[in-house]
Simulated scan of single mutants.
Amino acid sequence: MFTSQGPTLRELATQALSSVEQGYDLLAPKFDATPFRTPEPWLHAVTKALRPLGPFDDGLDLCTGTGAGLRTLLPLCRRRVTGVDFSAGMLEVARTVAARTHPVTGPPAVDWVRADAMALPFREGYDLAVSFGAFGHFLPDDRPRLFARVRQSLRPGGVLAFPLAAPLSASTSAWWAASGFDAAMRLRNALRRPPFVMYYRTWPYSAVRGDLLRAGFAERLVPLDDFGHRPDGTPRAALLVARKL
Protein backbone atom coordinates (compact mmCIF):
# COMPACT_ATOMS: atom_id res chain seq x y z
CA MET A 1 0.00 0.00 0.00
CA PHE A 2 1.02 3.63 -0.43
CA THR A 3 2.11 5.43 2.71
CA SER A 4 2.04 9.09 3.69
CA GLN A 5 5.70 9.26 2.65
CA GLY A 6 4.87 8.01 -0.84
CA PRO A 7 4.02 9.98 -3.98
CA THR A 8 0.78 11.93 -4.26
CA LEU A 9 -1.81 11.13 -6.91
CA ARG A 10 -0.66 14.20 -8.83
CA GLU A 11 2.96 13.04 -8.72
CA LEU A 12 1.98 9.58 -9.97
CA ALA A 13 -0.01 11.13 -12.81
CA THR A 14 2.96 13.28 -13.79
CA GLN A 15 5.17 10.21 -13.80
CA ALA A 16 2.72 8.23 -15.92
CA LEU A 17 2.58 11.02 -18.49
CA SER A 18 6.37 11.15 -18.80
CA SER A 19 8.79 8.82 -20.54
CA VAL A 20 9.85 5.74 -18.58
CA GLU A 21 13.28 7.21 -17.76
CA GLN A 22 11.98 10.64 -16.75
CA GLY A 23 9.10 9.09 -14.85
CA TYR A 24 11.43 7.04 -12.68
CA ASP A 25 13.78 9.97 -12.17
CA LEU A 26 10.77 11.85 -10.77
CA LEU A 27 9.54 8.93 -8.65
CA ALA A 28 12.95 7.89 -7.31
CA PRO A 29 13.01 9.88 -4.02
CA LYS A 30 9.70 8.27 -2.93
CA PHE A 31 9.89 4.94 -4.74
CA ASP A 32 10.67 2.85 -1.66
CA ALA A 33 7.47 4.15 -0.04
CA THR A 34 5.33 2.65 -2.81
CA PRO A 35 4.03 -0.89 -3.38
CA PHE A 36 6.22 -1.06 -6.51
CA ARG A 37 9.35 -1.85 -4.52
CA THR A 38 10.04 -5.58 -4.39
CA PRO A 39 8.84 -6.89 -0.99
CA GLU A 40 11.38 -8.47 1.33
CA PRO A 41 9.75 -11.94 1.27
CA TRP A 42 10.40 -12.18 -2.48
CA LEU A 43 14.04 -11.21 -2.05
CA HIS A 44 14.56 -13.74 0.75
CA ALA A 45 12.81 -16.53 -1.18
CA VAL A 46 14.96 -15.95 -4.27
CA THR A 47 18.16 -15.91 -2.20
CA LYS A 48 17.20 -19.22 -0.64
CA ALA A 49 16.39 -20.78 -4.02
CA LEU A 50 19.64 -19.61 -5.62
CA ARG A 51 21.99 -20.58 -2.82
CA PRO A 52 22.26 -24.28 -3.84
CA LEU A 53 23.19 -23.19 -7.40
CA GLY A 54 26.29 -21.27 -6.28
CA PRO A 55 28.85 -20.30 -5.37
CA PHE A 56 28.93 -17.19 -7.54
CA ASP A 57 31.75 -14.69 -7.90
CA ASP A 58 30.10 -11.71 -9.61
CA GLY A 59 26.41 -10.79 -9.65
CA LEU A 60 24.37 -8.35 -11.74
CA ASP A 61 21.08 -6.80 -10.64
CA LEU A 62 19.34 -5.91 -13.90
CA CYS A 63 17.10 -2.80 -13.73
CA THR A 64 18.11 -2.40 -10.10
CA GLY A 65 15.97 0.67 -9.38
CA THR A 66 16.70 1.71 -5.81
CA GLY A 67 18.81 -1.40 -5.28
CA ALA A 68 16.45 -3.85 -3.59
CA GLY A 69 17.82 -6.74 -5.64
CA LEU A 70 21.24 -6.34 -4.07
CA ARG A 71 19.75 -7.90 -0.94
CA THR A 72 19.60 -11.10 -2.97
CA LEU A 73 23.08 -10.84 -4.49
CA LEU A 74 25.15 -9.77 -1.49
CA PRO A 75 24.87 -13.07 0.43
CA LEU A 76 25.48 -15.11 -2.74
CA CYS A 77 28.42 -13.40 -4.45
CA ARG A 78 32.02 -13.58 -3.29
CA ARG A 79 33.67 -10.81 -5.27
CA ARG A 80 31.44 -8.11 -6.77
CA VAL A 81 27.82 -7.09 -7.28
CA THR A 82 26.66 -4.51 -9.80
CA GLY A 83 23.37 -2.64 -9.96
CA VAL A 84 22.49 -1.40 -13.45
CA ASP A 85 19.64 0.94 -14.37
CA PHE A 86 19.00 3.63 -16.95
CA SER A 87 17.44 6.06 -14.44
CA ALA A 88 20.04 8.35 -12.89
CA GLY A 89 17.55 9.28 -10.17
CA MET A 90 16.96 5.69 -9.12
CA LEU A 91 20.70 4.94 -9.07
CA GLU A 92 21.36 7.95 -6.87
CA VAL A 93 18.82 6.72 -4.34
CA ALA A 94 20.28 3.20 -4.59
CA ARG A 95 23.77 4.49 -3.76
CA THR A 96 22.48 6.46 -0.80
CA VAL A 97 20.39 3.60 0.60
CA ALA A 98 23.22 1.08 0.17
CA ALA A 99 25.73 3.33 1.90
CA ARG A 100 23.34 3.79 4.83
CA THR A 101 21.97 0.29 5.28
CA HIS A 102 24.62 -2.02 3.78
CA PRO A 103 28.05 -0.52 4.37
CA VAL A 104 30.50 -2.79 2.60
CA THR A 105 33.87 -3.16 4.30
CA GLY A 106 35.01 -6.20 2.32
CA PRO A 107 33.93 -8.47 -0.51
CA PRO A 108 31.69 -8.40 -2.31
CA ALA A 109 32.39 -4.93 -3.65
CA VAL A 110 29.36 -2.94 -4.84
CA ASP A 111 29.27 -0.79 -7.95
CA TRP A 112 26.60 0.98 -9.97
CA VAL A 113 26.31 1.42 -13.73
CA ARG A 114 23.91 3.61 -15.64
CA ALA A 115 22.97 1.74 -18.80
CA ASP A 116 19.99 0.61 -20.87
CA ALA A 117 19.23 -3.08 -20.36
CA MET A 118 18.81 -3.35 -24.14
CA ALA A 119 22.43 -2.23 -24.63
CA LEU A 120 24.33 -3.65 -21.66
CA PRO A 121 28.05 -2.75 -21.82
CA PHE A 122 29.28 -6.00 -20.23
CA ARG A 123 30.89 -9.01 -21.88
CA GLU A 124 31.16 -12.29 -19.95
CA GLY A 125 31.66 -10.45 -16.68
CA TYR A 126 29.08 -12.11 -14.41
CA ASP A 127 28.13 -15.53 -13.09
CA LEU A 128 24.63 -14.54 -11.97
CA ALA A 129 22.07 -11.97 -13.13
CA VAL A 130 18.78 -11.32 -11.35
CA SER A 131 15.89 -8.97 -11.96
CA PHE A 132 12.80 -8.10 -9.93
CA GLY A 133 9.60 -6.53 -11.20
CA ALA A 134 11.16 -4.77 -14.20
CA PHE A 135 10.21 -6.92 -17.17
CA GLY A 136 6.84 -5.25 -17.61
CA HIS A 137 8.84 -2.36 -19.09
CA PHE A 138 9.83 -4.50 -22.07
CA LEU A 139 7.45 -5.36 -24.88
CA PRO A 140 7.29 -8.94 -26.16
CA ASP A 141 9.26 -7.94 -29.26
CA ASP A 142 12.05 -6.67 -26.98
CA ARG A 143 12.67 -10.02 -25.30
CA PRO A 144 15.03 -11.57 -27.89
CA ARG A 145 17.33 -8.55 -27.81
CA LEU A 146 17.14 -8.25 -24.04
CA PHE A 147 17.99 -11.91 -23.48
CA ALA A 148 20.81 -11.69 -26.02
CA ARG A 149 22.35 -8.76 -24.11
CA VAL A 150 22.04 -10.57 -20.81
CA ARG A 151 23.57 -13.69 -22.31
CA GLN A 152 26.49 -11.60 -23.58
CA SER A 153 27.00 -10.30 -20.03
CA LEU A 154 27.22 -13.78 -18.50
CA ARG A 155 30.18 -16.11 -18.42
CA PRO A 156 29.68 -19.60 -19.91
CA GLY A 157 27.34 -21.47 -17.61
CA GLY A 158 26.16 -18.23 -16.00
CA VAL A 159 22.62 -17.94 -14.66
CA LEU A 160 19.80 -15.47 -15.28
CA ALA A 161 17.10 -15.79 -12.61
CA PHE A 162 13.86 -13.96 -11.94
CA PRO A 163 10.69 -14.81 -10.00
CA LEU A 164 7.34 -15.50 -11.62
CA ALA A 165 3.93 -15.59 -9.98
CA ALA A 166 1.45 -18.25 -11.05
CA PRO A 167 -0.97 -17.11 -13.78
CA LEU A 168 -3.97 -15.24 -12.46
CA SER A 169 -7.44 -16.65 -12.91
CA ALA A 170 -9.94 -14.52 -14.79
CA SER A 171 -12.32 -15.03 -11.88
CA THR A 172 -10.09 -13.04 -9.49
CA SER A 173 -10.05 -9.31 -8.82
CA ALA A 174 -6.28 -9.30 -9.37
CA TRP A 175 -6.73 -10.51 -12.96
CA TRP A 176 -9.24 -7.75 -13.67
CA ALA A 177 -7.04 -5.12 -12.01
CA ALA A 178 -3.99 -6.16 -14.07
CA SER A 179 -6.02 -6.34 -17.28
CA GLY A 180 -7.57 -2.93 -16.59
CA PHE A 181 -4.17 -1.39 -15.91
CA ASP A 182 -2.76 -2.79 -19.16
CA ALA A 183 -5.74 -1.49 -21.11
CA ALA A 184 -5.32 1.97 -19.60
CA MET A 185 -1.62 1.98 -20.49
CA ARG A 186 -2.35 0.98 -24.08
CA LEU A 187 -4.85 3.83 -24.37
CA ARG A 188 -2.39 6.27 -22.79
CA ASN A 189 0.36 5.23 -25.21
CA ALA A 190 -1.95 5.50 -28.20
CA LEU A 191 -2.77 9.10 -27.27
CA ARG A 192 0.51 10.46 -25.92
CA ARG A 193 4.20 10.40 -26.76
CA PRO A 194 6.70 9.39 -25.58
CA PRO A 195 5.17 6.09 -24.47
CA PHE A 196 5.37 4.81 -20.91
CA VAL A 197 5.86 1.08 -21.29
CA MET A 198 4.60 -0.84 -18.26
CA TYR A 199 2.34 -3.85 -18.58
CA TYR A 200 1.49 -6.71 -16.22
CA ARG A 201 0.30 -9.40 -18.60
CA THR A 202 2.80 -9.42 -21.47
CA TRP A 203 5.31 -12.01 -20.13
CA PRO A 204 3.53 -15.39 -20.05
CA TYR A 205 5.84 -18.24 -19.13
CA SER A 206 5.35 -20.18 -22.36
CA ALA A 207 6.43 -17.22 -24.52
CA VAL A 208 9.30 -16.26 -22.23
CA ARG A 209 10.55 -19.85 -22.20
CA GLY A 210 10.63 -19.98 -25.99
CA ASP A 211 12.56 -16.73 -26.25
CA LEU A 212 15.10 -17.91 -23.67
CA LEU A 213 15.69 -21.17 -25.54
CA ARG A 214 16.17 -19.32 -28.82
CA ALA A 215 18.61 -16.91 -27.11
CA GLY A 216 20.84 -19.78 -26.01
CA PHE A 217 19.64 -20.59 -22.50
CA ALA A 218 18.47 -23.80 -20.87
CA GLU A 219 15.72 -23.01 -18.38
CA ARG A 220 13.80 -24.61 -15.55
CA LEU A 221 11.38 -23.52 -12.84
CA VAL A 222 12.29 -23.80 -9.16
CA PRO A 223 9.24 -23.59 -6.85
CA LEU A 224 9.33 -20.81 -4.26
CA ASP A 225 7.73 -22.79 -1.47
CA ASP A 226 7.62 -19.78 0.86
CA PHE A 227 4.50 -18.63 -1.00
CA GLY A 228 2.62 -21.90 -0.72
CA HIS A 229 0.62 -23.78 -3.31
CA ARG A 230 -2.64 -23.36 -5.16
CA PRO A 231 -5.56 -25.76 -4.64
CA ASP A 232 -4.37 -27.88 -7.58
CA GLY A 233 -0.98 -28.34 -5.88
CA THR A 234 1.05 -26.11 -8.20
CA PRO A 235 3.25 -23.43 -6.59
CA ARG A 236 1.96 -19.89 -6.26
CA ALA A 237 5.37 -18.62 -7.32
CA ALA A 238 8.52 -20.00 -8.91
CA LEU A 239 12.01 -18.87 -9.81
CA LEU A 240 12.83 -19.12 -13.49
CA VAL A 241 16.46 -20.21 -13.72
CA ALA A 242 18.01 -19.84 -17.18
CA ARG A 243 21.58 -21.09 -17.63
CA LYS A 244 23.75 -19.87 -20.50
CA LEU A 245 24.68 -22.75 -22.76
Rank of each mutant, 00 (worst) to 15 (best):
T234D: 08
T172Y: 02
M118K: 10
T202K: 01
R230V: 03
P29Q: 01
G6M: 02
C77W: 04
V104Q: 15
G158C: 07
D226K: 04
T96M: 03
S179T: 13
R71V: 00
P140Y: 07
K48M: 03
V104H: 13
L212Q: 09
F122S: 06
G180L: 11
V113G: 06
P7S: 04
G125Q: 10
A134V: 13
P107R: 15
P144K: 07
R145N: 10
L168N: 08
R192S: 14
G83K: 04
H102Q: 13
E40P: 03
P121M: 10
R95Q: 15
P235I: 00
R230F: 05
Q5C: 10
R243H: 02
V97A: 06
D142I: 11
K30T: 01
P121Q: 09
E219G: 03
R79Q: 14
E40R: 15
L50K: 07
R209A: 13
A238L: 02
R220M: 10
V84Q: 00
P107Y: 13
W175D: 05
A215N: 06
A49N: 10
W112V: 02
M90S: 11
V46R: 04
L53S: 02
S179G: 01
R193F: 07
T72R: 04
M118F: 05
N189D: 14
E124L: 02
E21T: 14
R100V: 01
R186E: 12
W175L: 02
P194N: 14
A174E: 14
V241S: 05
E40A: 14
P121K: 07
S153Q: 03
L160S: 06
E40Y: 13
A88N: 00
F196V: 08
F135C: 12
H229P: 00
N189G: 08
A94H: 08
G210R: 13
F181M: 08
D61N: 10
T66F: 07
P156I: 03
V110C: 09
T64D: 01
R10T: 14
T96R: 11
F135M: 15
T64M: 06
E124T: 08
E92C: 11
D225L: 07
G136R: 00
S153V: 01
F36Q: 14
A207Y: 11
R186N: 13
F181N: 05
A16V: 00
D226S: 10
L212K: 09
S153A: 15
A115D: 08
G106W: 05
V241H: 08
M90E: 11
A99H: 12
F132H: 14
F227C: 03
A165E: 13
D127M: 04
G106V: 07
R149E: 15
F227V: 00
T82G: 06
A109T: 14
T66L: 06
Y200N: 12
S169W: 00
Y199P: 12
P204H: 00
F31P: 05
V130H: 01
S173W: 02
L224E: 09
L128F: 06
M118R: 14
D142E: 07
A16L: 15
W42T: 09
A166M: 00
A33C: 07
R193A: 15
A218W: 13
W112E: 02
G89Q: 05
A88W: 00
A207I: 04
A207W: 11
L73S: 05
V20S: 05
E11H: 12
H137K: 04
L91E: 11
R214G: 04
D111G: 05
A165N: 13
Q15L: 15
A183M: 09
